[in-house]
Computed example of a mutant assay.
Amino acid sequence: MKDPRIVAMLMAAAAGLCAAPLAGAQGPAQAPAGKALFLRNCAACHQASGKGIPGAFPALAGNPLVQGPAPEVASVLLQGRGGMPDFSASLSDEDIAAVLSFARGAWGNKAPPLAGEEVGTLRTRLGVPQYANGRMSNKH
């Protein structure tokens, strides 16, 4: 049985993956990695355009949380929030920093990038287990 809402969300996600390239505000080495990580891990829900899917997945473009204090937005990726899973076991501190730096500088967002060390410090402070580094995980 097919739910038309799910089909519509999947079609919108696929269309979002085909959107035009986006520019990030991080350094040259981090920008391509952050964008690639975003497209692989986040765009299906939040869309390549950063506009999300209304009523299902929030927009990241213009989002005050995304542009707010780095620890607040990083904790979402480390611990999850609402229906969003955490990425603590599947993304390294450097990967989380890169994807957040991309999102904080794309789509007109104007927030400073993060460093992997900042994410690592927050991971320790929150008591989130260290990155699995390739070990099997059932999260994604």
Rank of each mutant, 00 (worst) to 15 (best):
G80H: 04
A36D: 14
F87V: 02
L65T: 03
A103P: 11
F57N: 08
C42W: 02
R123Y: 01
A48M: 04
M9C: 10
G16P: 10
A98R: 09
M84C: 03
A70C: 06
S92D: 06
W107E: 09
N138Y: 05
Q79C: 10
R5H: 02
G34H: 01
M11S: 15
A103M: 14
A70F: 03
S101H: 04
A59L: 07
C45G: 00
G116Q: 13
P113V: 03
L10H: 14
I53V: 13
L126Q: 01
L91W: 12
S49F: 02
F102R: 11
G55N: 08
V99E: 09
G120K: 09
Q79T: 12
M84K: 07
D86I: 02
G120A: 13
L114E: 09
P54Y: 03
A61G: 07
R81H: 06
L39I: 11
A33R: 15
A33P: 02
R5F: 09
V119S: 01
M11Q: 15
Q67N: 05
S137V: 07
A36C: 12
I96F: 03
G105L: 03
Y131H: 12
L114C: 06
P32I: 06
L39N: 08
G68Q: 02
I53S: 02
P64E: 03
R40N: 10
L122I: 05
T124Y: 00
S92N: 13
S88T: 05
G134H: 10
Q130I: 06
